[in-house]
């Protein structure tokens, strides 16, 4: 029990250090640049305490739950030796975690509004919802595909940069042909798909896989899954925009 408590205290100290810059920046700009007092100090204090405790618990949970399960499953899949199940698992993990992602739902809704304003689709509610739903599905599909390809890459040891640079070239070419309204949304969608819970799980999966397959280096080959998951949505959203116009 004392071990747990010491762990908690140590993690909390780390969280305090991580959060200090935000408090500092907000405080300095509010007081010195905008020259306004901090509003409702009590709410602010409660919020700050919640943030610190929350981050502390999250980091503790990473070490206890997310990292071990991700690595254990990667080891088990490697021992099972079935590439099909591993790829299916990668796809489901990517698709399942993305399709319900709140940030993606928000972005898809905004994109539908932009498309309606630009005259790409009818501006009634139905058409917009269909557009947003299609966008969400295609992004979730693209993330599933990304994790699947990323897992294949770890298994076969392909260098990550060829795939990523190939993807960049795809983005560059598609940007020339996509409707201009969708471009900003597409580029942003790459960043929002990877949620705070998916990232540690996927990182543990990649590293666990790379360390249980002979000849793979966990640093060189284990990372890169998140990079795929942030690149493919850009391509799919651009493609979706081109198809729908």
């Amino acid at each position: 029990m004392t071990g747990q408590l010491r762990f908690f205290a140590q993690t909390m100290l780390g969280s305090l250090r991580d959060l200090a810059p935000i408090f500092l920046v907000i405080g300095v700009f509010q007081l010195l640049v905008l020259k306004q007092p901090l509003p409702n100090g009590f709410e602010l204090l409660i919020g700050a305490i919640l943030v610190i405790i929350g981050l502390t618990l999250f980091v503790m949970g990473l070490e206890l739950g997310l990292f071990p399960i991700g690595e254990a499953m990667a080891h088990d899949f490697a021992r099972k030796g079935s590439l099909f199940w591993l790829m299916l698992f990668g796809f489901c993990l990517g698709f399942g975690t993305t399709v319900a992602e709140p940030a993606l739902i928000a972005v898809a809704r905004e994109a539908a509004t932009v498309a309606a304003d630009g005259g790409l689709i009818a501006s009634d509610e139905m058409a917009q919802q269909r557009y947003a739903g299609g966008l969400r599905l295609s992004v979730a599909f693209s993330v599933g595909l990304a994790i699947m390809v990323g897992v294949l890459r770890i298994v076969f040891g392909w260098p990550v940069h060829y795939l990523i640079i190939g993807g960049y070239l795809g983005v560059v070419i598609m940007t020339r042909f996509a409707p201009p309204e969708i471009i900003g949304v597409a580029y942003d969608s790459g960043g929002v798909t990877t949620s705070t819970i998916t990232v540690p799980l996927v990182a543990a999966l990649g590293v666990g896989l790379a360390s249980s397959i002979k000849g793979r280096n966990p640093v060189v080959d284990g990372f890169g899954l998140i990079a795929f998951a942030s690149l493919t949505p850009i391509i799919f959203v651009l493609g979706y925009g081109m198809l729908m116009s």
């Binding site: 204090l45 919640l50 610190i52 929350g54 981050l55 618990l57 739950g65």
Partner: peptide
């Protein structure tokens, strides 16, 4: 660990929403 992650993230988000 999962309980810690979920509760921690919820507190974290609520705190941000409330203060920052």
């Amino acid at each position: 660990g999962f309980v810690y992650v979920v509760v921690g993230l919820a507190l974290f988000l609520q705190g941000l929403e409330q203060a920052l």
